[in-house]
């Protein structure tokens, strides 16, 4: 009899309709989302929203590169252990200085800018992570 009950039930339940919310439902949701998003963007540094991996990779790479180049003081000392590295470093350093033909301070400022950008990115990254944790279901 249970099979028949199922059949009767399937026939009856066809008449059950899905409920519909008010006509303004979607607009109300989107309004709240836009408000939410603008609130978040005050906290977040919105220019870091896309392609985070690419940005962090570039910034880290450039920061390390600039630190190595502009903070290598004195003349390179050729030893059996680091001769290739030092020669390469000197070559890059000289080429860059010739290319820009500006004072050393310029590169220092450049490095500070890159470091600041990197720190800002890290701050943004952690703020967004904390927000996600707070909003997690």
């Amino acid at each position: 009899m249970e099979d028949k009950t199922k059949i009767y039930f399937e026939e009856i339940i066809k008449d059950l309709k899905i409920e519909t919310p008010s006509k303004k439902f979607t607009d109300n949701v989107m309004k709240q989302i836009y408000a939410e998003f603008s609130d978040e963007s005050v906290l977040k540094l919105s220019f870091f929203n896309k392609n985070k991996f690419l940005i962090i990779f570039s910034v880290v790479f450039l920061s390390i590169f600039l630190i190595i180049i502009f903070f290598s003081s004195g003349q390179p000392v050729a030893t059996p252990d680091n001769s290739i590295y030092d020669l390469y470093l000197k070559l890059v350093f000289d080429k860059l200085k010739d290319f820009f033909n500006v004072k050393f301070e310029f590169f220092l400022i450049l490095r500070i800018i890159f470091s600041s950008v990197f720190i800002l990115y890290l701050a943004d990254f952690f703020i967004s992570k904390i927000q996600k944790l707070n909003h997690s279901v």
Binding site: P21, F25, V29, Q32, I33, S136
Partner: peptide, 19 residues
């Protein structure tokens, strides 16, 4: 109540969409 909770469900989904 249902309308409000349904809206909250969408907002929560939006906030957690990266998850």
């Amino acid at each position: 109540d249902a309308e409000e909770i349904a809206q909250d469900a969408f907002i929560k989904a939006f906030q957690s969409i990266d998850l």
